[in-house]
Amino acid sequence: MKKILLMLVLSLVLILSLAACGGTDVVGETSADSFGKLLEAMPEQIEADENGQGWVLNAPDGSASFFWGKNYSGEGSYDVFIETDIQPFLEAGLKGEMLPPGIVSEDKIIVGIDLGDDKLWKDKETDPLDSYRQILESNRDAIQYHGELDHYGINIGSGNVFEWAKDMGTNDKDMVFVLDPEIFIEAGVDPGKVDGWVFGKVKVDGEDGKPVEVEKFLKPFDIL
């Protein structure tokens, strides 16, 4: 019995050590590599935020953009967000006043989350990939792997995600803006009529870790 307990304790210690050990986080590590490749593939689409709070990655057609912050203590909107034109949604029946407050900003729709109140962690100048690594370090759970599409993604709350391909060479959807359709449908949008967005079902990991099939608005781009 002593041997059993010893083995049990030893295994538990190892399990807990592993769980706490970042060295085994292959998803996190490789997601940064892939994100770096995405940035390298479209340098002209990347720009510093006008307020100096982060970085913006624009879609090739300019219809949407992804922002990720570098200083979470700064003023402004979310630390990570997706911004897209409101016009296609209005044409599909959107009644802007029915959306939750803060989502509509002039002619844009903005969905995102705050990651905290921390100031810059690094004294040196950061670059877009460095800022992504900061997210990885401080909010690892926001990064996910989407097995069905072989994508990584940053969860920006309420079912909205910014995704990019793990391997752009083999994937035909190298970058995807994902919006949860629920609030838009409730606000009068006919989901099949939103120009520039694909309304479809995708398989994702649910909150309990089990795969579930959900409906999403998708705006995919094939970069390479």
């Binding site: 592993l18 706490a20 986080d25 292959v26 998803v27």
Partner: peptide, 22 residues
């Protein structure tokens, strides 16, 4: 599925595998 997030197969696949080895 009340296992720690750090063992979720699609989030931390290597942890998931190593724990199984252990």
């Amino acid at each position: 599925f009340p296992i720690p997030v750090s063992l979720e197969p699609m989030q931390y696949p290597l942890n998931y595998a190593l724990v199984q080895i252990l």
